[in-house]
């Protein structure tokens, strides 16, 4: 099987490359959306007196995660069709991945901002910082590494889920897997699976590095001391 898979890989590098690019493209678009929405929502619900809303939003996002991806694609196809938007292919998959990516990003943004030391915020306010300045100069710089960790989680998870998107015609590295299942070709399944896993591992390593790079220098020192 592995022999055949390797042969297939060598013969069809151009195809596999195309699928990989498709896959990455879907992931990037979906996660950019998830970050924009997730961070905004996370900042909003971390505001004073919004604990109830925060609870509800996070609860809702957690429920989102429990919906099986195939079912979610199905539901989205129905909704998109009724809005006369393209109901198969790229759009439903991107929307589904955006929804899946929200929970880790919202939750991490919320927690990171809420956990900024209240003494720092009090010091900032006492020295005459407005709420926006406190957010931009204190809360966000300190929250960025935690938000990055949420993004990392979301992206790695979505790489797997995106493979299923091939079933509704979005392309990507799910293609060889579904073809393999349909035609009893284990070599195709193996190629698809290995590529998806490799992609996930590489992205995880890159994101881990990015998480470190976005950690403010003064905080890095503290983390290093702790460990």
């Amino acid at each position: 099987m592995w022999q055949e898979a390797w042969q297939y890989f060598l013969k069809n590098t151009d195809k596999i490359l195309k699928w990989t690019v498709q896959h990455i493209y879907i992931i990037i678009v979906a996660n950019v959306c998830a970050v924009i929405i997730g961070v905004t929502v996370g900042i909003f619900i971390s505001g004073k007196g919004r604990e109830r809303i925060a609870e509800m939003v996070i609860y809702f996002a957690s429920i989102m995660m429990t919906i099986p991806s195939l079912a979610l694609y199905g539901i989205l196809m129905g909704i998109l069709a009724s809005l006369s938007l393209p109901s198969i292919g790229f759009l439903p998959v991107v929307i589904a991945l955006t929804l899946y990516g929200l929970l880790p990003i919202i939750r991490n943004t919320y927690t990171a901002i809420r956990e900024v030391d209240p003494d720092m915020i009090e010091a900032g306010r006492g020295m005459g910082m407005g709420e926006t300045q406190i957010l931009l100069k204190i809360k966000l710089p300190l929250a960025v590494p935690v938000i990055m960790a949420g993004m990392r989680q979301a992206i790695v998870m979505n790489i797997g889920i995106a493979a299923i998107g091939s079933y509704i015609g979005a392309g990507g590295l799910g293609q060889p897997i579904f073809r393999g299942i349909a035609n009893y070709r284990t070599d195709l399944i193996a190629v698809g699976a290995v590529c998806v896993s490799l992609l996930a591992i590489i992205v995880d390593v890159v994101m881990g590095r990015l998480e470190w790079l976005t950690t403010p220098k003064g905080v890095r020192i503290r983390l290093r001391r702790k460990s």
């Binding site: 030391d117 003494d119 720092m120 915020i121 009090e122 010091a123 900032g124 306010r125 006492g126 020295m127 005459g128 910082m129 407005g130 100069k137 204190i138 710089p141 300190l142 403010p216 220098k217 003064g218 905080v219 503290r222």
Partner: peptide, 29 residues
């Protein structure tokens, strides 16, 4: 905020900003 910028403020737990250097902390106001 204007009022507070003209009144120095120091607290027990200091509340220095860990992501800023010493001079940036001092130059907050």
């Amino acid at each position: 905020n204007e009022l507070r910028r003209n009144i120095g403020y120091a607290i027990q737990n200091i509340g220095l900003f860990p992501h800023l250097t010493v001079w940036e902390n001092i130059a907050t106001v």
